[in-house]
Each structure stands twice: as structure tokens, then as C-alpha cells.
């Protein structure tokens, strides 16, 4: 490596320093605020941190460390950057179709169904599931625990109010997902917003829960955690999968994001495929 141009060595030194700064930032946040981002996947974390550095008018991650440790409001803003996962109603419609066709028949045999939607973000997919369960006549015996690390997004989720501009895509997803009604029956349009029927959240409990630091809080027949684990590194994915396993009833259903797989985690032997393409699994041991 001795004959590398000085410029490239400089860039390497900068990159090494950047990694040190990110480690210091996550360590500081953990010690001071208790939020643990230390095992978040580095490439996405790096992008999100830099986005906040620039948004705060700063030029270094070290500058951001100082700011978030002394100014809780800037920590709130960083927390949003680090925890909001963009989603849509019936995101990956074929996942919901598979759930309808392959999981709903199993759930019909249960007197009561407890579901956990872990990392529900702004709630679009919780309302999607509530609509599906209502249409299948199962909603009245279901309870959905919808949790997220971030209190601000939970407030949004609780409101059930989403931008009207997203309804075209949502409607098309709903149809592909096997919706049996008319999507617009589920909301009232007001100005630029769609207000969803309060009956959809009658059996939903929204609560703050941190997958990284909080323990199991119940046993579930269904656990959804979609496009959340992609932000975690391998070690943390394994830990959270253990948490799900502890929280999962025998023969319970695990639903992951379309491009997530339990193949690369240590719990793989506890599950069988329900629909491998849609990442629906069933606990068998």
C-alpha cells in the first residue's frame, strides 16, 4: 500500500475517522439517552447521520455529537431520521394476498388471535392488516399490538390520517392484495387528507417498544416485522429474532419484508416456510 497516492491515503484516513465519529455518536446517545443504535447496519446509518449533520447546518459528525448531547430537541430530530421507515398501505400487495390465502385459514381455527406489528412506523401497514381482517370476518377476535421505538410516528399512526395524494397507489395495492370491498369506503377525504375509519383501530394497541433494548411483553400468534431488520447488523438481527422467538406461540406466523430472509439468522431451524417468496414463516419448534 506504500505506493498509493497521498490523496487516496488522505481519503482512507478520513473514512477511518468518520467511522470513529459514528461509533462515538452512537455510544454517546446510548449512554445519555438510552437509545441503542450501536448495532445498526453501518452503510444506512452513515447516510442517515450525514443527512442530519447537513440539516443541522453542521459540517462534521463530531459537531453533531456535541449538538445532540446538549440539545434534546436536535436528538428528537435525529431520532426521527434514524427510525422512520417509509411505507405504504398494502406495501408488497402479494404479501397480503399470500397472508389472506395461506394464513387466514389457519387463524380461523383460533378462538382469539394476538398479533404484534413490530416497528409499525406511521401505521399504514397496521391499517392495511385491520382492513384485511375485517373483510375476512376475523377482526373482532384479533388484537393487534403495534409498536415502534418512536413516539412521534406512533402519534401519527394513532391518528389514522394519511395524505390523500398516496391513496391512488394505496388503492391499486389494495386491489392487487385481494381486497374484496371498495377501498374508498375505509376513509373520508378531507382537504388533502384521508381520515381512516376509527373502527379499524378499535382492536389496535399502539405502544412504544424498542426492539433493541426492551424485552418480550406477550405471546403472539402472528408477528410482523417488515423492513425494520434491514437497518440492523447481523448480531442485532439475531438478537431481535431471539426476541421474536421468545414472543411467538408454537405454530405462530412470522412475516418479514419481501427481501429479508431468516436464512441468514440463527433462528432458521425454528421455522418452516409458509410462503418463502413472500417471507411468511411458521414456528415449528
Amino acid at each position: 500500500m506504500a505506493n498509493q497516492p497521498a490523496q487516496i491515503l488522505d481519503e482512507q484516513a478520513k473514512a477511518d475517522l468518520e467511522e470513529i465519529e459514528i461509533r462515538l455518536l452512537t455510544e454517546g446517545i446510548f449512554r445519555h439517552y438510552g437509545f441503542d443504535f450501536r448495532d445498526y447496519s453501518l452503510p444506512s446509518l452513515r447516510r442517515r447521520v450525514w443527512k442530519r449533520v447537513y440539516a443541522e447546518g453542521l459540517s462534521t459528525i463530531a459537531g453533531l455529537i456535541e449538538k445532540v448531547l446538549h440539545d434534546p430537541q436536535s436528538m428528537e430530530r435525529l431520532l426521527l431520521d434514524l427510525s422512520i421507515n417509509t411505507t405504504a398501505m398494502f406495501r408488497d400487495p402479494t404479501f397480503y394476498l399470500a397472508f389472506r390465502e395461506k394464513v387466514v385459514p389457519l387463524l380461523r381455527t383460533y378462538p382469539f388471535v394476538r398479533m404484534w406489528h413490530a416497528g409499525c412506523s406511521t401505521g399504514e401497514e397496521v391499517y392495511s392488516m385491520a382492513i384485511l381482517l375485517q373483510e375476512e370476518g376475523l377482526y373482532d377476535r384479533c388484537r393487534i399490538y403495534a409498536t415502534d421505538i418512536n413516539e412521534a410516528v406512533l402519534q401519527k399512526a394513532k391518528s389514522g390520517i394519511f395524505p390523500l395524494s398516496t391513496m391512488q397507489e394505496n388503492t391499486s395495492n389494495y386491489i392487487t392484495a385481494g381486497g374484496s370491498g371498495t377501498f374508498s369506503d375505509y376513509y373520508t377525504a378531507r382537504y388533502d387528507y384521508a381520515i381512516f375509519r376509527p373502527s379499524l383501530r378499535e382492536n389496535v394497541v399502539f405502544a412504544q417498544h424498542n426492539l433493541v433494548t426492551d424485552a418480550s411483553f406477550n405471546h403472539f400468534n402472528v408477528i410482523f416485522c417488515r423492513n425494520v431488520l434491514i437497518y440492523f447488523n447481523n448480531a442485532l438481527q439475531d438478537r431481535v429474532q431471539q426476541l421474536f422467538l421468545q414472543s411467538m406461540e408454537m405454530f405462530g406466523i412470522l412475516g418479514l419484508g419481501k427481501k429479508e430472509s431468516i436464512k441468514y439468522t440463527k433462528v432458521v431451524d425454528h421455522y418452516e416456510d409458509v410462503d418463502p417468496e413472500e417471507k411468511l414463516y411458521r414456528r415449528i419448534r
Partner: peptide, 24 residues
């Protein structure tokens, strides 16, 4: 890269590892 995801590249020790994101 799958449709509707960002695809990022990382290292896991000796191995090159892929990482997805649904950031904006």
C-alpha cells in the same frame, strides 16, 4: 437491486455483504 429498495454494500469481516434500505 430489488425494486423499491436501496441496495448498499458493506463488509462483514472477510465477506462482502449486501444491505437494503427503504429510506426516501
Amino acid at each position: 437491486a430489488p425494486a423499491d429498495y436501496h441496495l448498499l454494500v458493506d463488509r462483514d469481516g472477510e465477506h462482502g455483504e449486501l444491505s437494503l434500505s427503504v429510506d426516501a
